[in-house]
Design a protein around this nucleic acid. Sequence first.
DNA 1: CTGCGACTCGTACAGCGTTCGAGGTTTCTG
DNA 2: CAGAAACCTCGAACGCTGTACGAGTCGCAG
Lengths: 271, 271
Amino acid sequence: MSAKQHFTSVWARRAARDGAGRTHREQPGLSEAQIVRAAIELLDAEGLDALSMRRLGARLGAGATSLYWYVQTKDELFDLVLDEVFGELRLYGETVSWQNAATRFAYGLRQLFLRHPWAIRLLGVRPTVGPNALRMSDWTLAVFQDAGFGDFDAAHAISTLTAYIVGMAATEVAWHEAVARSGMSAEEMLCETRPLIEARLDDLPRMREYFRIHPDLDPKISLEIRFDYGLKCVLDGLAARLAQPGPPSGDAGHGPGQAMYGTGQERIPGS
Amino acid sequence: MSAKQHFTSVWARRAARDGAGRTHREQPGLSEAQIVRAAIELLDAEGLDALSMRRLGARLGAGATSLYWYVQTKDELFDLVLDEVFGELRLYGETVSWQNAATRFAYGLRQLFLRHPWAIRLLGVRPTVGPNALRMSDWTLAVFQDAGFGDFDAAHAISTLTAYIVGMAATEVAWHEAVARSGMSAEEMLCETRPLIEARLDDLPRMREYFRIHPDLDPKISLEIRFDYGLKCVLDGLAARLAQPGPPSGDAGHGPGQAMYGTGQERIPGS
DNA sequence: CTGCGACTCGTACAGCGTTCGAGGTTTCTG
DNA sequence: CAGAAACCTCGAACGCTGTACGAGTCGCAG
């Protein structure tokens, strides 16, 4: 937004600052780490919209504008807290197979997002290049390279896996947040959503039939099963790509998807 | 947030309103459809943060608070615009295979999010039960049921596929938004991000090696290839699940993932 | 004409992120 | 020890936000 700083992200500024010889002070009363910790507490307790600089300052016994000494802007604070929670993810040193490693990673990341629901909303805004995120990337790169994926395939595999995890967590979080905001229990919420869908069932032949056969649905339980189902799909798909590598998937040559199912781009005349 | 209304979403209120006999006026000067259209124009042109009720009102030649006659709250407007853009997605009547249908769906949804980058950020906030979203669900349900998926498997397949699309689109959008916000070209942005990563390469053995071998990376081109790679993984994984259905994946019985790769939940002593 | 429902909107409120600059405090330098 | 320099805090203010409220306007039924 503002062009007054040449640097684009916190991490660049920090690298520059650490490069110059920096005089160290003992107790500045406030610290970046302290601010980040308090911000995460506030975010976990009251959600993304409840975090304001004034409230955060008050929580730290400081004025709102004092925070701006440690943090350039609120967005920068978001970068910091996001990378901080990424640090919570345990990256295992030894696993029995790459599938096992990926599964642990997937469940860990999913639960990280369920623990910090606000984090998923920050993902859509800025790409993450903080130290913890980079460490995560390096670890996953090792997993897939050691499994036998080529360089490009490994990078693609990482994107595929994390995209699935993030997408799945996003819908779960959206559901939980909606329930929390409504002040109802999940069951009440469901009871209120159903007739709303049923009112439109005239246009929805498949869902009508689905609801006729399965009148009881409890998504609460099935969310984890559902996550596992999709995770296995992704891993099986990756395994298939590993077994029969095909052409090395560099950036040269064939465009996407012409070989198998069509690109999805061409027009079909009917309907 | 506020408990003054019993209804939880726009769609419920609208159903109730349509139920009661409603006197119709010809030209109220403003209309919900008009507001939604203008909001989408503004969102596409200037992004999510640029949409304020005052600006939207001004764009329509009306006062800001006039909008509140047609829309209960700003969040409700978000529900409306999100479902409106879902209506842009073409749902094909005939396809050569379920993979082809799913591929078309995936590319269509991806490009919808690239066309309306703000939409992906709205997804994380409220679950979508608008008419267009429901129509989408019904269509995908038909695709997977006709492909031979059982009822629960079809629902899981839908979640898996859309989670992948949403997750992938989210990272793409985050990248594009960051580039746009920085005011730089993608190349400049990349040039500035690189040394920032390189500064940390000491802790990142795999990425160091990766960069040593592939010093040139142009993510601009590879984004679509990458999307296609992961999409094929997902589809192959689904196909595998279709070929060998295993136990009907209802909600009863086995917990997630115990059979294949471990749950990712258990602790490993080492490291 | 009266009355009523549909609709518009000016005003106001509390809160937001952020800038500015005046102050205080600590540490370094001469 | 004096003074400069760096570090840190923060009150005041600006322009913005979503939206509650109530007064006001319009078109039409009786």
